[in-house]
Simulated assay, not measured.
Amino acid sequence: MVDTSQDDRVAEFRGVAGPYWSLRPIGGGPEWEAEPERVRTPTPAERLSAENARQNARSRGALR
């Protein structure tokens, strides 16, 4: 997912919290809540870039 209220930050959908969606950065980090109308599906390029960043973080040992 892409949160347009967070400078197009790419994240994983984690669940619903009341009227908000819980999102978590692809590369790890704290979750945040977003308004569903400000969230969109990532483009293939955004998805690839986020996955690349996640794999790089994993190879550095920042993710398990």
Rank of each mutant, 00 (worst) to 15 (best):
M1E: 10
M1W: 07
V2H: 04
V2R: 09
T4V: 07
T4H: 02
S5C: 02
S5I: 00
S5M: 02
Q6R: 12
D8L: 04
D8I: 04
D8E: 07
R9V: 13
R9I: 11
V10P: 04
V10L: 03
A11Q: 05
E12K: 01
E12S: 07
E12A: 06
R14V: 14
R14F: 02
G15D: 05
V16D: 07
V16G: 07
A17F: 02
A17S: 15
A17L: 12
A17D: 13
G18C: 02
P19Y: 04
Y20I: 01
Y20A: 06
S22E: 12
S22T: 15
S22Y: 00
S22R: 11
L23D: 10
R24G: 00
P25S: 02
P25L: 00
I26R: 04
I26E: 00
G27S: 13
G28M: 08
G28D: 13
G29Q: 01
P30C: 13
P30A: 15
E31T: 12
W32R: 08
E33P: 08
E33K: 10
A34E: 10
E35H: 11
E35T: 12
E35W: 09
P36E: 01
P36D: 03
V39S: 09
V39R: 02
V39T: 11
R40Y: 07
R40A: 08
T41L: 12
T41Y: 04
T41N: 10
P42N: 03
P42K: 14
T43R: 04
T43N: 06
T43D: 06
T43A: 03
T43V: 06
P44E: 15
P44C: 07
A45R: 14
A45T: 03
E46N: 02
E46A: 06
E46R: 04
R47Q: 06
R47L: 15
L48S: 12
L48P: 10
S49Q: 12
S49I: 09
S49E: 11
A50R: 07
A50V: 09
N52F: 09
N52H: 10
A53S: 11
R54V: 07
R54P: 01
R54H: 09
Q55R: 15
N56Y: 13
N56K: 15
A57I: 00
A57H: 03
S59C: 02
S59I: 05
R60C: 08
G61H: 04
G61Q: 07
A62W: 15
A62L: 07
L63W: 00
L63E: 00
R64C: 01
